Simulated scan of single mutants.
Amino acid sequence: MKLVVVAAGLTQPSSTRLLADRLAEATSGLLPEPPEVRVVELRELAVDVANAFVTGFPNTRLREVIEAVTAADGLIAVTPIFSGSYSGLFKSFFDVIDPTALAGKPVLLAATGGTARHSLALEHALRPLFSYLRAVVVPTAVYAAAEDWGGGGDPFTDGLGERIARAAGELADLLARRAPEPREGTRADGRQVEDLEDLEDVVPFEQQLAALRPPTA
């Protein structure tokens, strides 16, 4: 199982990357088998994303990242909040991805910001974006303000760990129940189709039509 984490933090170290790592760790710990986790730092791809807009084609490095994101079994997307919405780099990256490529993919959304006042950006900005992309977004979105990293015993700010655990549990549940799509040349039970005898349970179309005809007198 492959889990890709997209982090749009602009600094190093970054609270956005820290939140992304905690979400990935929490999700991995709840799955029956540890997934293959890949973290994508968008700040390293900023020039590539801009060039893709100008030329209309992603270069080799960006194309490889896009393929990893679209082929993943699950996605964690984390962005800093600027002016009440996701960052321009975050939006630009998902703009260069085919709008149908994330259809049906389980996604956990998260964001960071300087104040808790921007937490609603998850609902009025990020969730509509991924709904448009037809991704399956988990119910719990995680927002971490600057004070959430304090850990001073305040129940109103120490709930970050609980929110991470709840969101990770929802994503892990979707991933655990996500059945792989059957490959071409395989039966529904996963066995390879080797000859026509494997198709004996398929009723020919002509036989189905004959069964619908009224009996002759």
Rank of each mutant, 00 (worst) to 15 (best):
R61F: 03
L199P: 11
E25T: 13
R127F: 09
T79R: 04
T186H: 13
V142G: 11
R163G: 04
I81A: 07
L129S: 01
V142D: 12
Y132I: 03
A165C: 05
L199N: 08
G84A: 05
S87R: 02
Y143S: 02
R177F: 00
D73P: 03
A168Q: 04
Y132L: 11
R38F: 02
A145Y: 06
G114A: 08
A144N: 04
V193S: 06
R22S: 02
D21R: 15
R187D: 07
P128D: 05
A211P: 02
G161H: 06
E25Q: 14
D48S: 14
T55H: 13
S28K: 10
A72F: 12
D158T: 03
R127Y: 09
L31F: 07
R134G: 00
Y143R: 06
T100S: 13
L62V: 10
T100K: 15
D195G: 14
G9C: 05
G114M: 08
V65R: 05
V78M: 05
A145P: 07
D154F: 07
P215K: 04
L109K: 02
L209Y: 03
K91C: 00
Y132N: 03
V39I: 15
L126F: 10
G88Q: 01
P128I: 04
R17L: 15
P35R: 00
P99D: 09
G150M: 07
D198R: 11
E162K: 12
E64F: 03
G151E: 04
P155V: 06
G150R: 14
G159C: 08
G88I: 00
S131F: 01
V203P: 13
G29F: 13
G113Y: 03
T60L: 11
E67R: 15
E64L: 09
S92K: 05
D195M: 00
V203F: 01
A125Q: 03
E194H: 09
L75F: 11
F53D: 01
R183K: 12
A167L: 01
A165L: 09
A46I: 03
P128A: 05
R38V: 05
A26I: 03
E36Q: 13
F90Y: 12
R43C: 06
A7T: 15
L122I: 10
S131Q: 09
F82E: 03
S28V: 02
T55F: 11
W149G: 06
Q207D: 14
A168Y: 07
E194A: 14
L108S: 04
A165D: 15
L133E: 02
E147L: 07
D198N: 13
A168M: 08
L19W: 10
A7L: 05
P13C: 02
A165M: 08
E44A: 15
L45I: 07
E194Q: 12
P180A: 08
R166L: 13
P99W: 09
T216H: 04
T70P: 04
L160R: 10
G169Q: 08
G169D: 06
R187A: 14
A135P: 04
